[in-house]
């Protein structure tokens, strides 16, 4: 096999050009969140679940998947492709839903349904993966990295959606709209906390989540910081108790005991909240609990202090505003008693 050698003068010139290009594009290191100014392609180093990643300081073409999808749409990030996110559709505003439907779907509901060719065709300059860390194993990260820088920012404990969504919006350079929505949420929550300050802090609350498994005879008991409780806590609600054997993620703040343990689990509750669907219907797993005589024996139920809460899956500030409205609507009778 023959190898053609490059003339020395020509190779020196090429080396010089490469050096110049590296200086211009700014490949030097930078601190987390900082940016390097160097011509047209500024970059910064971003700390994500998958390590410190060099990403464009001002991305123009973003692909988002999983929990990052509603965050990016709400923050008006420059999206060119998203994964399907059916579970979030009932909580999207009309405008966001229209945007969601219009955007090209480059992945399905599951991480394993990622369409790498579709992502490559979208020509993104940043890919934001919003799935839990264990699910990252279902994604061919090397293949994605060959398309664009990839940052993984997935959910951990449910109440951490605030920090995670901010980080996702930050990666996409879309903090302006995000911060405005966050401010609106915090103002609204503070207003409701004031409205219920004479009734809520005195109540010991318990919560029944929507993810119990009827086939196994279990129900989901959610504690403070869980999906069903964290937004109500911003209004001043206090959920008592803690998980007997904490696990990772949402298992740190919720558990799945047998229906037989319902009396022990909620005996001390002055009031009980429970998750319902976006349309107000009661999920099968919650209905299973509410149809049992053990539920009817609970003191909170006898005192008629049970409150359905819609939109408990909220993971963005915009969605959480709807949850606040739902909580206000549900807790309203407390002010009359």
């Amino acid at each position: 096999m023959s190898v053609r050698t490059m003339p020395l003068r020509r190779s020196s010139a090429l080396a010089g050009a490469v050096t110049l290009a590296l200086v211009v594009t700014g490949c030097g290191s930078s601190s987390d969140g900082g940016s390097d100014k160097a011509g047209d392609a500024r970059t910064r180093t971003f700390a994500a679940d998958n390590g410190k990643i060099k990403i464009p300081a001002n991305p123009k073409r973003v692909v988002a998947t999983g929990y990052a999808v509603p965050v990016m749409i709400e923050a008006e990030a420059p999206l060119v492709g998203i994964s399907s996110w059916k579970r979030g559709e009932p909580m999207m505003s009309k405008k966001d839903l229209a945007t969601y439907k219009k955007l090209s779907k480059v992945a399905g509901e599951q991480a394993a349904e990622t369409n790498y060719e579709a992502i490559a065709e979208a020509e993104p300059d940043l890919i934001v993966i919003g799935v839990p860390a264990p699910v990252l194993g279902d994604i061919d990260m090397q293949r994605l990295k060959s398309i664009a820088p990839v940052v993984a920012i997935g959910p951990t404990v449910p109440s951490a959606w605030r920090e995670q969504s901010r980080k996702q919006a930050d990666a996409a350079g879309a903090l302006k709209k995000f911060d405005a929505t966050q401010k609106a949420y915090e103002d609204k929550a503070a207003g409701l906390a004031k409205k219920y300050k004479n009734v809520l802090p005195d109540l010991k609350l318990g919560h029944i989540g929507a993810y119990g498994e009827v086939a196994k005879g279990t129900f989901q008991r959610e504690f403070g910081g869980s999906w069903g409780t964290n937004i109500a806590e911003d209004v001043g609600a206090t959920y008592y108790g803690k998980v007997k054997k904490p696990g990772p993620g949402s298992r740190a703040v919720s558990e799945y005991p047998s229906l037989e343990e319902l009396p022990d689990g909620l005996a001390e509750a002055d009031a009980i909240t429970y998750s319902v669907n976006a349309d107000g219907s009661v999920p099968e797993s919650v209905k299973y609990v509410m149809d049992s005589k053990l539920w009817k024996n609970l003191s909170a139920v006898k005192a008629k202090k049970t409150f359905p809460i819609r939109y408990t899956e909220a993971a963005t500030y915009g969605q959480a505003m709807q949850t606040l409205d739902a909580i206000d609507e549900s807790f309203a009778p407390l002010l009359k008693s």
Partner: peptide
């Protein structure tokens, strides 16, 4: 509660 568990569950 105990009786309900035995009889109804």
């Amino acid at each position: 509660d105990d009786h309900v568990i035995v009889r109804d569950v």
